[in-house]
Design a protein around this nucleic acid. Structure first.
Lengths: 220, 220, 220, 220
DNA sequence: GATGAATGAGGTTTCATTCAT
DNA sequence: GATGAATGAAACCTCATTCAT
């Protein structure tokens, strides 16, 4: 479904090389941002010539997208696992938050790239990316909430799509707070504690509390 | 507290000119992003020479920050008004959401600039900005929640700072969804409706419901 | 007499392959010009590897020359047939013009390549090419005119070499006008009609009239 | 009528600088051809920075066109002078040929650039250029011939536009033979003499004879 | 014979910033 | 205060050619 943004030559490269290029690319893009990232540097750090880089990717943008999708896939796979099981929504949610915390730490660079794309750049580009990236995640959330609604596990008057949206907003903000400099500082300003020194469990507990209430609240 | 990033010459300029420069700058930065914005173009569109521009601002970054703060101030003033009154937290919250929607539409460019700074750029830069921008907002939120907690208007077991954080996360995501291309598309993917065609009241109602529950929920 | 510009390996290739390479090369060179033609693309379109291409031709220039000569040979063969017969000069000339029109349409790409070489490139290169290409044609023209002069078929005071030169100038210009974009437009500007929509006979008639007069004019 | 291809900044430059840039540009383009010409070299030789070069011309192509038009203007002005007078067509023609010879020697580089544009490059580009360049020349020729026709100075059965076309073909070929390496060598092959060592008068005499006959011939 | 992965020099273009006037 | 001409480093991308297999 996602259009590939690499050339066939890239497919033919060894796994080791492919991995190296993406790793180096993600490092460069996530640390410097799209505009300031330098393809020549990526090629050099990946141990290949710039000419070969362009045999693999037609443009800087294509390389960026490919790096991005590589990261997104990893995040999406983790999500897939959580959402597939049969647990109740609140259990799923807890695991979701927990996984989000864990992954954000491990895959900080992917999150940074994701943050990068949400700003700047032209409109059409943004739209295409949003479709590619948010599509599968949103479906999973919406389905889970709709199922819970059918089972009576959540309050009757909630709109599944809208609540899925709010839920993801909270999770995205959490991801950024774990990884992106600006959001990290913001986290500290709000909570008074550096995110790296805070006990994950406390965040998880509070956020879960927040979401749980929203889902199951009943007017007295 | 906020270090000014313009030179004294800028202060001496006429209000009209100051306004024009910031307006044009905000337009350029928000539409093209920081890296792709062109300071020579801003000068030309503002009707001054590039030389004078550098008499006013030492670097591109300084101009950007000054534009940013100009926008932030407007947003902050609106917030100030809402938060100062004596209403209950939930009433405040509703007005907060409502104002956020209205302002996002009117001041889309400020929000875009805000989104721009949360990505890319170097660490120290991000930290300083976060401090400048998030400080006053966060204090208002935290204070309001703490007061509500003292009055017994919200559940006893919530952490005011953490909940203020979650609240702001939801509001920021809403702002971006109203203004930034990527988030606009994401909104559509989640809700099925284009944000520009959706009735604000529905968003407000659902989001308020979400937050209200989180604040006042009580275990049965 | 003409130095070959291909390696021995090319001679050993099958006729089919040789033909394909030259055909594809001529297409690429004539449509993009020498500098913008891409030898890697030619190899791919000819169905061989770039490595093999360099087994056949030492450089891009050699491939170009070989393509060029292939085209020239075809044009030259047609000329040979016309000039060999025993007809009077004016009859020959008419057939020459007629053939030129016909061939220009059929072998547009060869003409384009020919046009390409008359510009740019370095001096020695140009000289060698001119010698290779113009030699046999010029001899045929000059001989024919000299014979006509000896027979009294043309005015006594003409210089055979110079008139051959003028004749060929007119024919070359005609060829270009049938094939090269610039000259095609120029033709339209002069005549008011698109060369592709004009009746060949009209051009032939007028040009023949022009040349006939030049050859046979006698002061009253 | 001709769209300018330089920026306003170029107009504001001193005449000395404008002249220098065009002179150096013409030298570079005519000696190396469009593709191989190097803007950096032109800038350096003109004594300005590359950045300023791009303040004057948006692209390499624009610089090229401007150089080209500068050369064309000089040629056109000379033509204008000749064609405006009231002399008979044959007198005009003689002066035309004579001027062409003289100018070709003096302005060899302009002719080379002109030759350069007649090949390669894309179709639309070629068409626009042809319109700009050939338009005024062709009008002058056609008008002069038509007038001569009306006065009975030339044979009745000639088509003014077509004969103007043939006439210009001969003149263009002559120009190229004086200036472009390939055509120079071709001239030598045809006439047996190096164009630079040949007496202009002989060429002029023969060509005039050729054209005169074509114009005034009458069937016996 | 045949492949095609790999190289890297080199060219066009952009734009933040300076400084003489 | 105000101008805007001038700078030049630096980035993306192309493609002829090589060579190990």
């Amino acid at each position: 479904m996602i259009e590939k943004r690499y050339k066939e030559a890239f497919e033919r490269a060894t796994d080791e090389r492919k991995e190296k290029i993406l790793e180096v690319g993600i490092e460069e893009f996530s640390s410097k941002g799209y505009e300031n990232a330098n393809i020549n540097v990526i090629a050099k750090n990946a141990g290949i010539s710039i000419g070969l880089m362009y045999k693999y990717f037609a443009t800087k943008e294509d390389l960026f997208i490919t790096c991005l999708e590589h990261g997104m896939k990893i995040l999406d796979d983790a999500l897939e696992e959580i959402m597939q099981c049969d647990d109740k929504l609140l259990v799923k949610t807890e695991r979701l938050i927990r996984t989000t915390c864990a992954h954000s730490k491990k895959n900080a660079n992917y999150i940074k790239m994701y943050n990068e794309i949400t700003s700047g750049r032209d409109s059409d580009f943004a739209k295409n990316l949003a479709g590619e990236i948010e599509g599968s995640t949103s479906r999973k959330y919406i389905t889970s909430i709709a199922q819970a609604l059918a089972k009576g596990d959540v309050r009757e008057d909630l709109d599944p799509r809208m609540f899925a949206f709010f839920l993801d907003n909270l999770l995205i903000a959490l991801q950024f707070s774990y990884t992106c400099d600006y959001y990290k500082e913001r986290f500290k300003i709000y909570t008074g504690v550096d995110v790296e020194e805070m006990n994950d469990e406390q965040i998880i507990k509070q956020l879960l509390k927040f979401i749980e209430s929203a889902f199951t609240f009943e007017k007295k």
